[in-house]
Structures are given as structure tokens and as C-alpha cells.
Amino acid sequence: SEEWVEIALRLLELGREANINGTILNLHKEEIEELIRRLLKRI
């Protein structure tokens, strides 16, 4: 399964939302940290 691709796409999506909203992603901080942890486990 290409889970890391899904994770990377989700991170990009959150990054785009952050640019549009001008936020520092506090809302998504925990989700982002969890996604990155899952991503690093696969490398």
C-alpha cells in the first residue's frame, strides 16, 4: 500500500490550507506531527 503517498498528499493539502488561511496550523499541529511520524517509520 502507498500509505506514504497519502500522508504526503495530506501534508501538502494542510500546507495549502495554511497559506490560504495564513494560519500557523495550530489546528492541525497534532495531525501533522502524527502524519510525519508515520511517514518517517516507512523510510
Rank of each mutant, 00 (worst) to 15 (best):
R10M: 11
L27H: 12
K41V: 09
V5W: 14
E2K: 13
I32S: 00
N26F: 14
L27M: 13
E30K: 13
E31A: 11
T23H: 13
L12E: 02
A18E: 03
E13D: 06
E13G: 12
I24Q: 04
L40M: 09
R16P: 03
E13W: 13
L35W: 10
E30N: 06
T23M: 08
G22N: 09
E6P: 04
A8E: 02
L40P: 00
G22I: 14
L11K: 00
E2R: 11
H28F: 14
E3K: 08
E30I: 07
E3D: 12
L9E: 03
I20N: 06
E30W: 06
R38T: 04
L39I: 11
E33I: 14
E13Y: 11
L11I: 06
E3V: 11
G22R: 04
E13N: 03
S1N: 06
E31Q: 08
R37L: 07
R37W: 11
R37P: 00
R37D: 03
H28Y: 12
L27P: 04
A8L: 14
K29W: 15
E33Q: 10
L25Q: 05
L39D: 00
E2P: 09
R16D: 03
G15Y: 14
I20Y: 06
R42M: 11
L35C: 14
E17S: 07
R10F: 14
I7K: 03
V5L: 11
L14P: 01
W4R: 01
S1Q: 13
I43N: 04
L12G: 01
R38Q: 08
E2Y: 12
T23R: 05
A8H: 03
R38D: 02
I36R: 00
G22A: 12
I20H: 05
A18M: 10
V5M: 11
I36M: 04
E17A: 12
I32V: 08
E17W: 11
W4N: 00
A8W: 13
L40Y: 06
L40N: 01
H28A: 09
L9F: 08
I32P: 00
E6G: 09
L11Q: 00
N26R: 03
V5F: 11
I32C: 15
G22C: 10
E13R: 08
G15W: 15
N19C: 15
W4G: 01
I24R: 05
R42H: 11
H28W: 15
L39K: 00
L14D: 01
L27Q: 10
E6K: 11
R10S: 02
E30Q: 09
E31F: 12
R38V: 05
N26Y: 12
E30V: 06
G15K: 03
N19I: 15
W4E: 01
L39Y: 05
L35V: 03
L25T: 13
N19T: 13
E33T: 11
S1D: 09
L9S: 03
E2F: 14
N26M: 09
E6S: 10
E6R: 13
N19V: 15
E3H: 13
I7A: 05
I7W: 11
G22Y: 06
R38P: 00
T23P: 09
I43S: 02
L39P: 00
N19W: 15
A18P: 04
W4F: 08
L40R: 03
L27F: 05
L35I: 05
L25M: 07
I36T: 01
A8D: 01
E34P: 01
E6N: 11
L9G: 03
I43H: 03
N21E: 06
N26C: 15
N21L: 15
E34N: 12
L9Y: 08
A8F: 14
T23L: 13
E31L: 13
